[in-house]
C-alpha cells in the first residue's frame, strides 16, 4: 500500500505520466473515486506519458475509448452506466488480455469481469482543500508490486 498526495491538476497529471513510463502491454489499472475525484485528469497524464497526443475525453457516453497512437494502445473505460449490471456482455476481457493498457473507472460495477492481478488506485478529494487529491495504490500480484516499486524509485530520484 502506498499513498501520494498531489496539489492541483498538473501534479495529478504528472503522477499519471510517471506511472505510464513503467507500463507494459496487458496492464490493468482500476481508478476508484467519486465524481470529480480526478480520475480523468490522472488518465490524461497517463495518456501523455504513453505518447498519446489526442485529448483523452470522458468515455462515459460510449463506455470504451481506444487510443492507438502511443507507444502502447490505451483502452480507457468508464463503466459508470453499468451500476445495475450488463458488464458481462461487453467483452471486457478482450481488452484486459489485449496488447494495450486498460484503465477502468467505476470498476466496482464490473467486479466479476476483472482480472485478479491488477493495480487499484483509490482517489479521494481532500475534505478541507479542494486542490488536494489523495492517491492510495493497492497492488494485486507480483507484476503490480514491481510496478509500484519502480514508481517509488522514480519519485525518490
Amino acid at each position: 500500500m502506498k499513498s501520494i498526495t498531489t496539489i492541483g491538476a498538473e501534479e495529478t497529471q504528472a503522477l499519471g505520466q510517471q506511472l505510464a513510463a513503467h507500463l507494459q502491454a496487458g496492464d490493468v489499472i482500476l481508478l476508484d473515486g467519486d465524481l470529480g475525484a480526478g480520475k480523468t485528469t490522472f488518465t490524461k497524464g497517463l495518456a501523455t506519458g504513453l505518447g498519446i497526443k489526442r485529448p483523452v475525453k470522458s468515455p462515459t457516453f460510449t463506455i470504451i475509448r481506444e487510443y492507438q497512437e502511443g507507444k502502447l494502445p490505451l483502452y480507457h473505460m468508464d463503466v459508470y452506466r453499468l451500476e445495475n449490471g450488463g458488464g458481462d456482455e461487453l467483452g471486457l476481457d478482450e481488452y484486459f488480455n489485449g496488447n494495450g493498457v486498460s484503465v477502468v473507472e467505476w470498476s466496482p460495477f464490473v467486479t466479476d469481469e476483472l482480472p485478479e492481478a491488477r493495480l487499484v488506485i483509490h482517489l479521494t478529494r481532500d475534505e478541507a482543500d479542494d486542490d488536494l487529491r489523495h492517491f492510495v495504490f493497492e497492488a494485486h500480484g507480483n507484476r503490480y508490486e514491481q510496478l509500484l516499486n519502480q514508481l517509488e524509485a522514480d519519485r525518490h530520484e
Binding site: I63, R81, N84, L90
Partner: peptide, 8 residues
C-alpha cells in the same frame, strides 16, 4: 431507474 443508459 438506473440513472443512465444501460447498454445491455
Amino acid at each position: 431507474r438506473f440513472g443512465g443508459v444501460v447498454p445491455e
